[in-house]
Structure formats: structure tokens, C-alpha cells
Computed example of a mutant assay.
Amino acid sequence: MAANGVNGHKISRPLKPGIYAPIPTFFKPDSEDLDLPTTSAHIARCAKCGIAPLVGGSMGEAHHMSHAERIEVIKAARKALDDIGLHTMPVIAGTGAGSTRETIQVTQEAAEAGADYAIVITSGYFAGALANNRPALKAFFKDVSESSPIPVMIYNFPAAAGGIDLDSDIITEMGLECPNICGVKLTCGNVGKYTRIADAVVQPNFTPRKNPDAPFLVLGGFVDFLVPTTFANGHGTITGLANLAPNTIAKLWELSCAALKDISLLQEALRVQGIAARADFTIAKTAIPGMKFLIEKEYGYGGLARKPLASLTDAEKKAIWEHPHTQDLLRLEHELSGKSKA
């Protein structure tokens, strides 16, 4: 059985099309120390629904954690999956940092801790100097991917990268030139960009990946366009909404793929897509504090983000919980999980 990357993993954990959840990092309320038992339990909850974890990403408040804390979370994620028998489900780890040097260091540390894949955001602190410097942007991902013992995914999230928005040409070029890059997460919400990259990936000239377990996946950063991008050769999404409604988002992916083969299922796929899209649009406005609040309201755990992120006010909590988009999503989630109220 092939090892994943060259970091000594003895179990093949392929990177497959589907749904991934950027896992929140949960903290103890009084100290803001890591709450690893809660984080692990949440990872297991999502994984049992077929949702693989991405730890140490934006939702995971990676930039609020030390290197050592990131490693603890990666190790906890791997153990959480192994403890429920999901030995072949991969762990993706966010390894972005300010400099190329530190990003490489964090990526290597993540691999040693058991991460199967890394996802790296563009360094945005000096966005004014980098945004229009295509050679420098490409060199960043080239250097990181070539130095990484595990495949690396590009994370395009302009709002968290000083406004740097990688276009479809540069992402495709990096895919062609860097065989250890295993995909892209598009949290820019640009459907045209998504379809252009997804088309490029299936062309005969697209460079084979260094690791056969790691094809180049084109993934959304929101779930509100999952159906149309599935029909455009897309590979799924990494969506925060899967933390709150894993059964619903898993069902949406199932329906999207099934509709490709049986068009009669498209209307049901679009019905579920509409519910998810409205909830994604509304809940995303409350960011990490809102997601943690909703998880706590629904599942009994969640807590606060690390400061300086502020918790929601009581009025904001009431508004997001009672919002029709939230309640429609939870109603469907309860139905799919068998917890519908009589």
C-alpha cells in the first residue's frame, strides 16, 4: 500500500472528491487553552457523517495558535479518526504563515504530526507588494510545495490574505508547474474561476501529480454553489456549514453526484441546495463566533473564539438562531439525522 507523501505514513489515505469541514478549534472558557476533548469529539461527529476534517484553517483560528498548539490539534484529529475506525480518512492541516520560511516549517511539522495534506493561504501581510507580483506569488507556492513532504493545496481566500485574489490562470499555471500541489480551495466564491480551473484539470496536458493518492481537486469554500459546480467537473467543497449540519451537506453532495447520472434527481438536489445556500449566506455573516454559538446551541458545546474576536451580543445570538434560514437548515438536518420533532 502506497504511503501518503514521503512522511512515513503506512496507510494510504487518498484525497477524494467530497465534503470537508474546516473544524473550529474549541477552547476552555476561562483560560482560552485548547479544549482537545471537545475538538476531538466534534471531529468524530462530522467524520461519522462522511465529512473529513481540515484542522488549523481559518475556521480553526490557526493564526491565534502557536506552532505547538497546531501540532496538538493535528495529533488529536488523527487519533479521533483512528478511535472510530476511520483509519483511511485523511487529515488536512492548515499550514499558512507569514513568510515562506515559516510556512515550510509549519508544513513539515504538520507532516511529522500526522497530517496527510496541507492547505496554504497566500501570505497577505505585505499584500501591497505581492498582489500584482505574479512571479513572487508563484514562487511562494512553488517553494512551499517542493519543500513539503505531503501534498499541498492552494487556499484562495482574499478576505484573509490582504485582498490578494489568485485568478484562474495563475492557479492553473501552478498546477501545471508544481506536481506536489493537490488542489485549490476557492473561498473567493467565483464560480467562473471554479469552472475554468476544473476544466483545465481534466485536459490531457495537465501534469500528473507527484503522489497518486492526491489528484488535483477543485473545491469551493462555500456550499452555496455545490450543485452547479458538480456539473462543471468540480470536486466538492470545504464548508464551515458542515460543522453545523453535516448530514445535510453530505446529502447535498450525494444528490449532486447522483443527478449527474439521473437528471430526475436534479430538482431535489436544487431544493436542498437552496436551503443550504440561504443558510450559508446568512450564517457566514456571523463568522467564527456565530458558528461556535450555533454549534453550542445545537449540540451543547462550542464556546468562544480567542480574543480579539468578540462573542455575539444577546441580540445577535437571538437573531441568527431564530433566522428562518438557520431554522430551515436545522429542520432538514434533524429530518436527515432522524431527530425530527413530532
Rank of each mutant, 00 (worst) to 15 (best):
A77E: 05
T172D: 08
K48F: 06
V202A: 10
E296D: 09
M89G: 06
V120L: 13
T230W: 04
Y20E: 01
V218C: 03
G98N: 09
E298F: 03
K341Q: 15
I19N: 13
H9Q: 13
Q273F: 02
T107R: 11
A276P: 13
C46Y: 03
V202H: 12
H67G: 10
D116Q: 00
G220K: 01
Y194R: 09
D165P: 01
K318H: 13
A97H: 10
D328V: 00
I11D: 00
E254C: 14
N7D: 01
N211R: 00
A2K: 02
L226S: 07
R278Y: 15
P212F: 12
T237C: 10
H325V: 06
V6N: 07
P29R: 02
K16Q: 13
F225I: 06
I121T: 10
I119Y: 13
L329D: 02
M1E: 11
E298R: 14
V223Q: 01
W321I: 06
L86W: 11
L217A: 03
G303R: 10
T39V: 10
L244V: 15
A118Q: 02
P228N: 08
V120C: 08
K16H: 02
G234L: 07
R78N: 08
H325R: 00
P246I: 12
V120P: 06
A97F: 09
N132V: 01
L309N: 12
N211P: 00
Q327V: 07
A76D: 03
G290A: 05
A118K: 06
S311I: 06
E316N: 12
R271Q: 14
K341I: 08
K142H: 14
A198K: 04
A111T: 13
V6G: 02
R271Y: 12
A97Y: 15
A277K: 08
I19P: 07
M291I: 07
T172E: 06
D213P: 01
Q273L: 00
Q203T: 11
V73T: 11
H334W: 07
C49N: 15
